[in-house]
Computed example of a mutant assay.
Amino acid sequence: MTHPLDPPADPFDVASRAADDIARLTGVARHDLAVTLGSGWGKAADLIGETVATVPATEVTGFSRPALEGHVGTLRSVRTAAGAHVLVIGARTHYYEGHGVRRVVHSVRTAAATGAKTMVLTNGAGGIRESWAPGQPVLISDHINLTADTPLEGATFIDMTDLYAQRLRDIAREVDASLDEGVYCQFRGPQYETPAEVRMAKAIGGDIVGMSTALEAIAARQAGMEVLGFSLITNLAAGISPTPLSHAEVIEAGQAAEARISRLLADVIGRIA
Protein backbone atom coordinates (compact mmCIF):
# COMPACT_ATOMS: atom_id res chain seq x y z
CA MET A 1 0.00 0.00 0.00
CA THR A 2 1.47 3.36 -0.99
CA HIS A 3 1.76 6.33 1.35
CA PRO A 4 1.51 10.02 0.36
CA LEU A 5 5.16 10.54 1.33
CA ASP A 6 6.56 7.66 -0.69
CA PRO A 7 8.87 8.67 -3.59
CA PRO A 8 8.54 10.19 -6.10
CA ALA A 9 6.32 12.49 -4.02
CA ASP A 10 7.86 15.81 -2.91
CA PRO A 11 7.72 15.75 0.92
CA PHE A 12 7.38 19.54 1.06
CA ASP A 13 4.36 19.44 -1.24
CA VAL A 14 2.82 16.80 1.05
CA ALA A 15 3.56 19.01 4.08
CA SER A 16 1.85 21.93 2.33
CA ARG A 17 -1.23 19.79 1.71
CA ALA A 18 -1.18 18.71 5.36
CA ALA A 19 -1.01 22.36 6.45
CA ASP A 20 -4.03 23.10 4.25
CA ASP A 21 -5.86 20.23 5.97
CA ILE A 22 -5.03 21.64 9.39
CA ALA A 23 -6.24 25.11 8.41
CA ARG A 24 -9.50 23.64 7.10
CA LEU A 25 -10.12 21.31 10.04
CA THR A 26 -9.16 23.76 12.81
CA GLY A 27 -10.36 27.01 11.26
CA VAL A 28 -6.95 28.55 12.06
CA ALA A 29 -5.19 29.86 8.96
CA ARG A 30 -1.69 30.09 10.46
CA HIS A 31 0.21 28.91 13.51
CA ASP A 32 3.04 30.81 15.16
CA LEU A 33 4.75 28.01 17.11
CA ALA A 34 4.61 24.22 17.16
CA VAL A 35 5.38 21.79 19.96
CA THR A 36 5.79 18.02 19.77
CA LEU A 37 4.78 16.36 23.03
CA GLY A 38 6.89 13.34 23.91
CA SER A 39 6.46 10.85 26.74
CA GLY A 40 5.44 12.65 29.94
CA TRP A 41 4.75 16.03 28.37
CA GLY A 42 1.16 15.51 27.21
CA LYS A 43 -0.68 17.58 29.82
CA ALA A 44 1.11 20.77 28.77
CA ALA A 45 -1.43 21.24 25.99
CA ASP A 46 -4.12 21.92 28.60
CA LEU A 47 -2.06 24.72 30.14
CA ILE A 48 -0.80 26.58 27.07
CA GLY A 49 -4.10 28.32 26.41
CA GLU A 50 -7.56 27.83 24.98
CA THR A 51 -8.02 24.83 22.71
CA VAL A 52 -9.57 26.01 19.45
CA ALA A 53 -9.77 22.59 17.81
CA THR A 54 -8.54 19.01 18.20
CA VAL A 55 -8.08 16.90 15.08
CA PRO A 56 -7.26 13.16 14.80
CA ALA A 57 -3.85 13.07 13.13
CA THR A 58 -5.00 10.41 10.70
CA GLU A 59 -7.36 12.98 9.10
CA VAL A 60 -4.36 15.06 8.00
CA THR A 61 -2.41 14.14 4.86
CA GLY A 62 0.71 12.09 5.53
CA PHE A 63 0.18 11.45 9.26
CA SER A 64 0.13 7.97 10.74
CA ARG A 65 -1.43 6.61 13.91
CA PRO A 66 1.16 6.66 16.75
CA ALA A 67 2.55 3.23 17.54
CA LEU A 68 3.62 4.08 21.10
CA GLU A 69 1.62 4.25 24.31
CA GLY A 70 1.89 7.74 25.78
CA HIS A 71 1.40 9.49 22.44
CA VAL A 72 -2.14 10.68 21.91
CA GLY A 73 -2.49 10.74 18.12
CA THR A 74 -3.99 14.21 17.74
CA LEU A 75 -3.13 17.63 16.39
CA ARG A 76 -4.42 20.46 18.52
CA SER A 77 -4.70 24.18 17.82
CA VAL A 78 -4.32 26.26 20.98
CA ARG A 79 -4.61 30.03 21.35
CA THR A 80 -2.44 31.60 24.06
CA ALA A 81 -3.55 34.45 26.29
CA ALA A 82 -1.51 36.79 24.08
CA GLY A 83 -3.38 35.62 20.98
CA ALA A 84 -0.67 33.44 19.44
CA HIS A 85 -1.64 30.15 17.81
CA VAL A 86 0.25 27.04 18.88
CA LEU A 87 0.11 23.75 16.98
CA VAL A 88 0.38 20.92 19.52
CA ILE A 89 1.57 17.70 17.92
CA GLY A 90 0.65 14.55 19.81
CA ALA A 91 1.35 12.27 16.86
CA ARG A 92 5.04 11.41 16.60
CA THR A 93 6.32 8.79 14.18
CA HIS A 94 9.50 7.22 15.56
CA TYR A 95 12.39 6.14 13.38
CA TYR A 96 12.28 2.60 14.80
CA GLU A 97 8.81 2.08 13.35
CA GLY A 98 10.54 1.52 10.03
CA HIS A 99 8.47 3.93 7.91
CA GLY A 100 11.43 5.98 6.72
CA VAL A 101 12.74 9.42 7.66
CA ARG A 102 10.20 11.35 5.58
CA ARG A 103 7.39 10.15 7.83
CA VAL A 104 9.47 10.77 10.97
CA VAL A 105 9.88 14.47 10.14
CA HIS A 106 6.55 15.06 8.38
CA SER A 107 5.03 16.67 11.48
CA VAL A 108 7.88 19.20 11.64
CA ARG A 109 7.66 20.06 7.95
CA THR A 110 3.89 20.40 8.29
CA ALA A 111 4.34 22.73 11.27
CA ALA A 112 6.64 24.91 9.19
CA ALA A 113 4.10 24.91 6.36
CA THR A 114 1.41 26.18 8.77
CA GLY A 115 3.61 29.22 9.40
CA ALA A 116 5.32 28.19 12.64
CA LYS A 117 8.67 29.90 13.14
CA THR A 118 9.59 28.04 16.34
CA MET A 119 9.67 24.28 16.92
CA VAL A 120 9.68 22.95 20.49
CA LEU A 121 10.66 19.27 20.65
CA THR A 122 10.19 17.24 23.83
CA ASN A 123 10.94 13.64 24.72
CA GLY A 124 11.42 11.15 27.51
CA ALA A 125 15.00 9.89 27.63
CA GLY A 126 17.72 8.17 29.62
CA GLY A 127 20.20 10.23 31.59
CA ILE A 128 23.93 9.50 31.58
CA ARG A 129 24.87 11.96 34.34
CA GLU A 130 24.52 10.30 37.72
CA SER A 131 23.58 13.65 39.28
CA TRP A 132 20.30 13.60 37.33
CA ALA A 133 17.23 11.90 38.76
CA PRO A 134 14.16 10.40 37.07
CA GLY A 135 11.51 13.06 36.62
CA GLN A 136 14.00 15.86 35.97
CA PRO A 137 13.57 18.07 32.88
CA VAL A 138 16.74 19.20 31.10
CA LEU A 139 17.36 21.40 28.09
CA ILE A 140 18.97 19.95 24.98
CA SER A 141 22.05 22.00 24.11
CA ASP A 142 23.12 19.96 21.07
CA HIS A 143 22.73 16.50 19.63
CA ILE A 144 24.67 13.57 18.20
CA ASN A 145 22.76 11.75 15.47
CA LEU A 146 23.56 8.04 15.80
CA THR A 147 20.85 6.81 13.42
CA ALA A 148 23.18 6.87 10.38
CA ASP A 149 20.32 8.61 8.58
CA THR A 150 19.11 12.12 7.77
CA PRO A 151 15.94 13.86 6.55
CA LEU A 152 18.01 15.84 4.06
CA GLU A 153 17.94 14.50 0.51
CA GLY A 154 20.52 15.09 -2.20
CA ALA A 155 23.17 17.79 -2.04
CA THR A 156 21.44 19.72 0.74
CA PHE A 157 23.96 21.35 3.07
CA ILE A 158 22.46 22.86 6.22
CA ASP A 159 24.46 24.52 9.02
CA MET A 160 23.86 22.90 12.42
CA THR A 161 25.60 25.54 14.57
CA ASP A 162 23.35 26.66 17.46
CA LEU A 163 20.69 24.19 16.28
CA TYR A 164 19.06 24.26 19.74
CA ALA A 165 18.89 28.03 19.97
CA GLN A 166 20.75 29.65 22.84
CA ARG A 167 18.18 32.46 22.75
CA LEU A 168 15.35 30.03 23.48
CA ARG A 169 17.32 28.20 26.17
CA ASP A 170 17.92 31.55 27.88
CA ILE A 171 14.17 32.20 27.84
CA ALA A 172 13.56 28.77 29.38
CA ARG A 173 15.97 29.61 32.18
CA GLU A 174 14.08 32.83 32.84
CA VAL A 175 11.17 30.57 33.73
CA ASP A 176 13.27 28.05 35.71
CA ALA A 177 16.84 29.09 36.52
CA SER A 178 17.63 25.60 37.84
CA LEU A 179 17.33 23.93 34.41
CA ASP A 180 20.42 21.93 33.49
CA GLU A 181 21.31 21.06 29.90
CA GLY A 182 23.09 18.35 27.97
CA VAL A 183 23.84 16.76 24.61
CA TYR A 184 21.17 14.37 23.31
CA CYS A 185 22.18 11.19 21.43
CA GLN A 186 19.55 9.69 19.16
CA PHE A 187 19.94 5.94 18.71
CA ARG A 188 17.95 3.98 16.16
CA GLY A 189 16.05 1.82 18.71
CA PRO A 190 13.71 0.23 19.47
CA GLN A 191 15.92 -1.71 21.88
CA TYR A 192 17.32 0.28 24.78
CA GLU A 193 21.03 1.02 24.65
CA THR A 194 23.53 -1.46 26.02
CA PRO A 195 25.84 -0.35 28.85
CA ALA A 196 28.70 -0.32 26.31
CA GLU A 197 26.71 1.94 23.98
CA VAL A 198 25.99 4.29 26.87
CA ARG A 199 29.70 4.41 27.71
CA MET A 200 30.38 5.19 24.04
CA ALA A 201 27.80 7.98 24.07
CA LYS A 202 29.40 9.46 27.18
CA ALA A 203 32.89 9.19 25.66
CA ILE A 204 31.86 11.12 22.55
CA GLY A 205 30.19 13.88 24.54
CA GLY A 206 26.63 12.68 25.11
CA ASP A 207 24.59 13.25 28.26
CA ILE A 208 21.15 11.98 27.23
CA VAL A 209 20.15 8.90 25.21
CA GLY A 210 16.88 8.37 23.35
CA MET A 211 15.17 7.40 20.12
CA SER A 212 13.71 10.63 18.73
CA THR A 213 14.22 14.37 18.25
CA ALA A 214 17.55 14.69 16.39
CA LEU A 215 16.13 13.92 12.94
CA GLU A 216 13.18 16.22 13.63
CA ALA A 217 15.51 19.03 14.72
CA ILE A 218 17.50 18.73 11.48
CA ALA A 219 14.29 19.02 9.47
CA ALA A 220 13.21 22.03 11.53
CA ARG A 221 16.51 23.76 10.84
CA GLN A 222 16.17 23.02 7.11
CA ALA A 223 12.71 24.63 7.25
CA GLY A 224 14.17 27.75 8.84
CA MET A 225 12.65 27.29 12.30
CA GLU A 226 14.26 28.08 15.64
CA VAL A 227 14.44 24.94 17.78
CA LEU A 228 14.07 24.41 21.53
CA GLY A 229 14.54 20.93 22.95
CA PHE A 230 13.55 19.44 26.31
CA SER A 231 14.24 15.96 27.63
CA LEU A 232 12.46 14.50 30.63
CA ILE A 233 14.93 12.18 32.31
CA THR A 234 12.71 9.15 32.84
CA ASN A 235 15.47 6.79 33.94
CA LEU A 236 19.20 6.54 34.33
CA ALA A 237 20.74 4.90 31.27
CA ALA A 238 21.84 1.26 31.06
CA GLY A 239 24.93 0.53 33.12
CA ILE A 240 24.21 3.57 35.30
CA SER A 241 20.76 2.53 36.47
CA PRO A 242 20.89 -0.21 39.13
CA THR A 243 17.80 -1.88 37.62
CA PRO A 244 16.89 -3.15 34.13
CA LEU A 245 15.18 -0.64 31.84
CA SER A 246 11.51 -0.91 30.91
CA HIS A 247 8.95 1.13 29.00
CA ALA A 248 6.67 0.93 32.05
CA GLU A 249 9.35 2.81 34.00
CA VAL A 250 9.39 5.53 31.34
CA ILE A 251 5.61 5.95 31.51
CA GLU A 252 5.61 5.95 35.32
CA ALA A 253 8.32 8.60 35.55
CA GLY A 254 6.48 10.74 33.02
CA GLN A 255 3.24 10.52 34.97
CA ALA A 256 4.97 11.40 38.24
CA ALA A 257 6.59 14.51 36.73
CA GLU A 258 3.69 15.47 34.50
CA ALA A 259 2.27 18.36 36.53
CA ARG A 260 5.62 20.09 37.04
CA ILE A 261 7.01 19.73 33.55
CA SER A 262 3.72 20.59 31.86
CA ARG A 263 3.54 23.88 33.78
CA LEU A 264 7.18 24.57 32.92
CA LEU A 265 6.64 23.92 29.21
CA ALA A 266 3.46 25.99 29.08
CA ASP A 267 5.18 28.93 30.80
CA VAL A 268 8.14 28.75 28.42
CA ILE A 269 5.88 28.63 25.37
CA GLY A 270 3.92 31.57 26.78
CA ARG A 271 7.11 33.65 26.77
CA ILE A 272 8.15 32.61 23.26
CA ALA A 273 4.82 32.67 21.38
Rank of each mutant, 00 (worst) to 15 (best):
P11A: 08
F12P: 01
A15R: 01
A19W: 00
A23C: 12
L25E: 05
R30G: 03
V35N: 11
G38L: 04
G38F: 04
S39A: 01
W41L: 12
L47D: 01
G49F: 10
A53Q: 09
G62L: 07
G62N: 04
G62F: 02
R65V: 10
P66E: 06
T74D: 03
R76M: 06
V86Q: 02
V86E: 03
G90M: 03
H94F: 06
Y95K: 06
Y95G: 04
E97M: 06
G98L: 06
G98C: 11
G100L: 15
G100N: 15
V104Y: 02
V104S: 03
S107P: 14
T118I: 15
T122V: 11
N123Y: 13
N123G: 14
G126D: 06
G126P: 07
S131Q: 12
P134M: 07
P134R: 03
G135D: 04
V138W: 05
L152R: 04
A155N: 12
A155D: 10
F157N: 06
I158H: 07
T161M: 04
D162Y: 00
Q166N: 09
Q166D: 11
A172T: 03
A172Y: 02
R173V: 04
R173C: 03
R173D: 08
D176T: 10
Y184G: 08
R188K: 13
G189H: 09
Q191M: 10
Y192M: 05
E197T: 04
E197F: 02
A201S: 14
A201Y: 02
K202A: 15
A203Y: 11
I204C: 15
V209F: 10
S212K: 03
A214H: 05
E216R: 05
A219M: 09
A220S: 08
Q222I: 11
A223P: 05
F230Q: 01
I233R: 14
T234H: 07
A237E: 07
G239K: 13
H247K: 00
V250G: 01
A253K: 01
A259R: 13
R260V: 08
R263G: 02
G270A: 08
